[in-house]
Structures are given as C-alpha cells and as structure tokens.
Amino acid sequence: MTMKKRILLVDDEDEILSLYGEVLAEEGFEVLIAHDGAEGVKVAKQEKPDLVLMDLKMPVMDGMDAFMQIHDDPATRAIKVVFLTAFGDPEVVGADIKISEEIGAAGYIRKGITLDELVKKVREYIR
C-alpha cells in the first residue's frame, strides 16, 4: 500500500479546517490540523508532514513566525510550507512570489480559489 501523502492544515478557523480538510481527505490525502502557529510547529515537528498549508493571520503565533520556526529547525526545514493567503493581505499582496523565493516557502495559495484549483495546486506542490 502506497503511503498516503500527509498534509498539515494550520488555520484558526475551524470551518476552514473542516472544509479544506474534508476535500483533501476525499482526494486521498491524510489530513492533520492545527489551530494556531504554535500548535502547527509542534505537529510539524512531531509528524513531519509532506506539505504544510499555513494560514497567515492567527492568534498566539501567526503563520510567518510559525514558518520561521519550522524553517530554522533543521529537523523540519525540508518540509514544504505553502501559505494560505487571503486576496489582498497587505503583507503579501504582490510579494507572493518573493516570499517563496526569498524566505524559502514553497509558495502560496489564495483562499478565494475554487476547491478544484486548490486540489490541483496541492498536487503540484506535493509532488
């Protein structure tokens, strides 16, 4: 049996986690969730998923900090992190590509896209 690819979803919105989680699960991925940046780092370290979808604005620790922690830790550096951005987030609008290049994140996905596109992009990144 081929191992299912494991995706870690980090978002403070429960319903986002359910929505994206269920869709991805239906597509055959194993889905892990975390509710904030800190939890996300913990799970990432523990479970070492194949892909992390990281929301940016979260309480306790936001996505950027969480990513930094994951990236800095040699144990988790290899993990691909993709930001979930909202269209128009001032911090990342227009700088999406730069983020991926300069910071070392794998890329970004805008939350407003259709679910089909979401799946497509995930498959692209996880490859």
Binding site: E13, E15, I16, L19, E22, V23, G88, K111, G112, L115
Partner: peptide, 18 residues
C-alpha cells in the same frame, strides 16, 4: 470587515462547490 468577511465567504463558496 472585509477581512472578517473573507473567511465566511470562503466557507460559503467552498461548501457550495462541494
């Protein structure tokens, strides 16, 4: 407001899609 609206909208849209 807009920011806050995005999440609900994403959900509405997403679930409708499903």
């Amino acid at each position: 407001a807009s920011h806050e609206m995005r999440t609900p909208l994403t959900l509405i849209k997403g679930n409708s899609e499903r």
